[in-house]
Write a protein that binds this DNA or RNA. Structure first.
Lengths: 204, 204, 204, 204
DNA sequence: GATGAATGAGGTTTCATTCAT
DNA sequence: TATGAATGAAACCTCATTCAT
């Protein structure tokens, strides 16, 4: 792929890490290759030994960030406990890692914008979103099978839950009323969980 | 505001319209002032008679787009009918104007990213989000007062609903499974509406 | 074509002139756009208002130089007098404009090399060479018809004469024995002219 | 010379060979040391064990190519037979090795251009041209002494012949009328040979 | 002798912005 | 108000070259 073979993996990771920091702070367009290089204390040109160019670096950053996010979700999946407990565990990681999440949001939204113009970015994002839903779906499905939830369509419910969380994060970031993210998130999700539990075939 | 006084308003609007088209297609960074000028068939330099520069133009575009979106929501608010009917009416405008929404999403996400770095953009976005919630809150509050919904916290419910819609739009854009946005949207919102109706003080 | 419309022709010519000087001195590769700009005392970026890039500039220079050379040849064609006189007139311009010719040779040879790799350059060169031959052919043909020369194949003879001149210029430039170009040129061409005059169907 | 002593000669030759291929294809400026290295499947840095740098490599390539060309000419000189036969033999090698000649022309013309700017290249080229003429001169002189040719100035005639061949090759490469090089070459040279034979003190 | 890695020094090109007309 | 022309400031990227191993 983008990182060339035969080249130190450590350096590759350093560069990606630096790029994340720089991109988050300045945005893709204003961040320069030199900014990134300075962050690692290497020469600008060295980056080109590891990535084909700025676009490739951006793509690598996208891959890294999204796989991290997925990792958090996967961790929640892998926990023991009831479906409800596992869902709660997941959104709690969000609030616990509040600083990290906030830090990455500018990049994430740029990816969302960029993905609508670059196919390579779009692919990686579509895959990420799809997998996010699948993770939640697995948990919900387990809850349905255990009788913990009503007989909901697990995939649709997972999509709704994913959407809800994404939307809440956006509000959280932009809301001036310094709402406690924890409270709002808990409230909203309970709302849906309650729907899951009480579900009685009413929805389309 | 940004547009200077005493200057043809029509020209100002033309430029904003052109900028929307160009920004949507190329993104803020890659779109050039010349691109915008060409779209209006005027000279690049002329734009500077109407806007202080690219940043000001971007801000003006943000204002325009967001006020349009709010307009749609306001229209739903102003409709006659029950709360449920009005909520349904709103999300149906989304699906009806599908093409427009899709077209503007790249810009919108860039705004979300940009707002985290530019205070003027942030202000306008925060205001937009806050007002979006308020519009929905008004409807929900009416529903609560009419006994159509349970005794929910109307603001929190509105926030949840707003978040849900934003999140679904994201999925819609990126999901490869060519889910019918209509179906998914309807399903998810029913989910919440059902929660509103059956609400019984359980949530935090 | 390359020079954009609506833009001062004088400036375009200035730039080409400057480019000729710079390219001749440094070669295409080592000459920078900034060198050219400095020669005209304008900003580097301004060149891009007149030419699409370095390649386009090189092509424009090729066109300019070759059309000048053709002009010299055409002038000889248009002279009054016998075929022999006109041929003599032509090669005398070479020696008269010795300094100019020497000055342009580095560029010309780079064109010959470049034309083997770039189709646009090749086209312009092939056309130039073909027209050079045609000009001489016209003179020779006139000489044949006037009985001044024997019944030679005018085109082939013109090709031979063109080749001879090109080759002599090369020797002239590189020969260390500071041969008088005038003498050598005269000798060689007389050699061919004599062949033209005495021609008796012997060649293949 | 350029290649450092005490170093595998085979490697040196490999590199020169690779450089010829790469330079011919891309030109001196666009060809990179890495291109050359890749062609030999060695590391870029290794080349610096054999040559002082790119300029030295170019010079070595010049030496190699020119000495090959001279070799062809020398072979014709060394043949048995009359002067005319030997001259014919020489130009026939040109047509026989058509592919090779065509392949090397881009390099050769770049040398001609480069030699006007670099003294080391100029020296090697001047020497080559001078020796080329000398080889032909020897043949012609023999022809004169044998009474095969008229009492021409052998050196001047050799210069004319050399020039003619160089010029024809140029036409050959660039001419769009897909002239058979063989025919044109034969015609032109016969033209001169005929002049040699019939020579009667008429030229300057 | 060979190479993976790094870099310094540009070079081309782009563009927001200015300004005289 | 409109614009043709110009420009300063970068940004991306390339590459010959060096050096420790």
């Amino acid at each position: 792929m983008s990182p060339k073979p035969n080249v130190s993996e450590m350096r590759t990771k350093q560069i990606i890490e630096a790029a994340i920091a720089v991109f988050a702070k300045k945005g893709f367009a204003r961040a320069t290759m030199e900014d990134v290089a300075n962050e690692v204390s290497i020469n600008k040109a060295t980056i080109y030994n590891y990535f084909d160019g700025k676009d490739a670096l951006i793509l690598a950053v996208a891959g890294e960030i999204l796989s991290r996010e997925l990792g958090d979700l996967q961790a929640a999946c892998d926990m023991p406990g009831t479906a409800t407990e596992r869902l709660n565990a997941f959104y709690e990681t969000l609030t616990v890692k509040e600083a990290d999440v906030l830090f990455l949001m500018p990049i994430l939204y740029e990816f969302y914008a960029l993905g609508l113009r670059r196919d390579d970015v779009r692919t990686i994002l579509a895959d990420f979103l799809s997998q996010s839903v699948s993770r939640l779906e697995a948990i919900i499905q387990a809850g349905v099978e255990d009788g913990e939830f009503g007989p909901v369509d697990a995939r649709k419910a997972a999509q709704a839950l994913t959407a809800l969380i994404d939307g809440i994060v956006l509000q959280w970031i932009y809301t001036s009323e310094k709402v406690d993210i924890n409270v709002q998130l808990r409230y909203s999700i309970q709302f849906v969980l309650q729907g899951l539990v009480n579900y009685k075939e009413e929805a389309a």
